[in-house]
Design a protein around this nucleic acid. Structure first.
Length: 268
DNA sequence: ATGGTTGAGCGTCAA
């Protein structure tokens, strides 16, 4: 049985970067592609595109202008409709599907966590409060699910939790995405039932980034990156993990996203 | 300390 490859990518506009999905499929050959920041309302989703790329099964939750998630798949999916409306905003940041595999169903979550604005203070900046509330709710919900099994969680979680998930731990301690209240919150969510599938392969003392700002003239030379995009698996899937890929070359794709795809291969 | 860039879609806001 061939392994199952699951990729996650903040595409930063699905319609603008539709041609790059073909690059992604060619480079990583994923069976399932989880996208964030699709920025396309559901009624304008390019419904012909997934099958043309070889992904006949798909689901999406989008809205005008911002946010939005989508899952493209070669294997049949069943969308989970009973997921929470995080923070009561109805804002297209989560999609959950079931994947049919020979050993049983796999649950897959695709998340786009709020970025949280610029000021790391919930009083001065409601967007930061929203981000903290979102991750606290997610933690509580997964804790309530009990011991997770055959579950994969991916997405742009907009937090770089470890010291070497950012280019300078010291210089980013007060920068949104790496403040202690965020990193502790994210790790508490992770501890509610997951292990970090990418750090399973890459030691914690090695720098690892998945995002580089558009604002750097030469992103590769300055290398001021952060690891904002994640793949977590329930502990029962650790033995099925085969490899991980952070497709750094994608940052140089023509008119590319500021995030690069991350892919994990599982013997499932 | 500041500014730097991009996308959606037309206002600036979000990132």
């Amino acid at each position: 049985m061939p392994p199952l490859r699951i990729a996650t990518w903040n595409i930063n506009s699905l319609r603008l970067r539709l041609p790059l999905l073909k690059e992604l499929a060619g480079a990583l050959d994923p069976d399932v592609i989880c996208l964030q920041e699709t920025k396309v309302p559901d009624e304008l989703f390019p419904t012909e595109a997934p099958a043309a790329l070889g992904y006949p099964f798909f689901a999406h939750r989008g809205m005008k202008g911002y946010k939005g998630v989508a899952i493209l798949s070669r294997v049949p999916i069943i969308v989970q409709q009973d997921t929470p409306d995080w923070c009561g905003r109805g804002d297209c940041r989560h999609l959950s599907v079931l994947l049919d595999r020979p050993g049983g169903t796999v649950t897959l979550h695709d998340f786009y966590v709020p970025a949280g604005g610029d000021i790391p203070d919930r009083e001065a900046n409601p967007k930061f409060g929203h981000k903290l509330d979102f991750i606290a709710q997610a933690r509580a919900w997964f804790t309530g699910q009990g011991g997770l099994a055959r579950t994969v969680l991916v997405g742009d979680l907009n937090i770089a939790p470890l010291e070497h998930d950012v280019w300078s731990h010291r210089q980013l301690l007060n920068v949104v995405s790496h403040t202690p209240v965020e990193t502790e919150g994210l790790l508490a969510w992770q501890a509610a039932g997951f292990v970090d599938a990418v750090r399973h392969f890459v030691p914690a003392d090695q720098k690892l980034f998945t995002w580089w700002s558009y604002r750097n003239r030469d992103w590769r030379a300055s290398d001021r990156g952060r690891r904002l995009d994640h793949v977590w698996v329930s502990p029962d899937l650790l033995g099925a993990l085969r490899r991980q890929v952070v497709h750094k070359d994608a940052r140089d794709w023509q008119q590319g996203s500021d995030h690069v795809p991350v892919c994990v291969e599982l013997a499932l």
